[in-house]
């Protein structure tokens, strides 16, 4: 009897194990396939899923633009609301604030959030990053944004959509956020790549939004707009291959810190690098902090030339 029972349980365990393996492998395969398309959604894809209650479409443009017209079922959550604006720069809002904001807007932790802006991607990417550092998982950005949507003559509406308040819990995900201290350490650490997403002129110290001119030591200059292209008068992300080529000199195993002036341009770089599979974070203090803090080292290309 005991032997029979052991036999049964062994058989059962083997069955469970095999079926578990099978399920897991199919799941992994599916995940890989959708990983790319999930981050970047196209209009067709979204149009098919407008009525899906699990998908929350967020219009991150300012309220007046939202009121002028938006995609049906999209709620309005302006990206600037996730900032705390100081004279010395914009910083991402603290967890308490984000929690309050998201709950009021009706975000749920399980939502698949689709973000769109007018197409320039700066606002959408920034919102994307905020969601990332507060622990959200399933997020897509509508490629081409509202302008593309309108260009394709898809239905828009002026009706305001709201969701019921939720119990959203923002969970801090520190790996997407680099602090001043972390960035300072990265300067001397060859295992970390620093990317300057500002314009080339700003990198070169020809112009600056801060008191000082130049860039963070060891930073590479890849301006955010290099990720975009102008198609028929509308900005869109460059094709996959082009983007891959743009960053191919970077080691995927090495963490990447991006920065810009206020944190929006760097968010675009963050989004693209994330999409490409890099370990990437944003230095939120940005040049407005770094450039104004005289205790921090900077590089002026002129000095190098000297």
């Amino acid at each position: 009897m005991i032997i029979g029972r052991i036999k049964d349980s062994v058989f059962f365990l083997i069955t469970v194990y095999l079926s578990g393996c099978l399920l897991l492998s199919t799941d992994l395969y599916a995940a890989k396939k959708t990983a790319r398309s999930r981050l970047l959604a196209d209009t067709n894809w979204l149009a098919e899923r407008l009525a899906n209650r699990n998908i929350l479409i967020i219009d991150v443009r300012p309220p007046d633009q939202y009121k002028a017209g938006h995609i049906r079922n999209a709620i309005n959550l302006p990206v600037d609301d996730t900032f705390i604006k100081h004279s010395y720069g914009n910083r991402v809002a603290p967890p308490v604030r984000i929690r309050q904001l998201f709950r009021r807007a009706g975000l749920k932790n399980g939502h698949w959030i689709v973000i769109y802006d007018n197409g320039l991607l700066k606002n959408a990417a920034r919102f994307y990053w905020v969601l990332k550092i507060y622990g959200h998982r399933k997020i897509s950005i509508l490629n081409g944004g509202y302008n593309q949507w309108v260009r394709e003559k898809r239905a828009t509406t002026q009706k305001t959509f709201t969701r019921k308040p939720s119990n959203y819990v923002p969970v801090i995900a520190h790996q997407y956020l680099s602090t001043k201290f972390g960035t300072l350490l990265a300067i001397d650490n060859p295992q970390v790549t620093i990317i300057d997403s500002r314009s080339r002129d700003e990198y070169l110290g020809l112009s600056s939004k801060a008191k000082r001119f130049g860039h963070i030591p060891r930073a590479q200059s890849i301006p955010w707009n290099m990720n975009l292209e102008l198609v028929d008068g509308l900005y869109k992300l460059k094709p996959w291959g082009t983007l891959k080529a743009l960053y191919k000199h970077l080691d995927k195993r090495v963490p990447v810190i991006t920065y810009c002036n206020r944190g929006k341009e760097s968010a675009v770089s963050f989004f693209v690098l994330s999409m490409l599979g890099y370990k990437v974070s944003v230095y939120d203090g940005a040049w407005l902090e770094w450039g104004n803090d005289r205790s921090l080292p900077i590089v002026k290309p002129d000095d190098n030339a000297k």
Binding site: I84, R91, P95, K180, D284, G285, E289
Partner: peptide, 16 residues
């Protein structure tokens, strides 16, 4: 919040 000081998100990320 203070000029030159870290943001609370920074602290949170640090703790995390």
């Amino acid at each position: 919040p203070q000029p030159g000081a870290e943001s609370s998100a920074d602290i949170a990320a640090d703790i995390a």
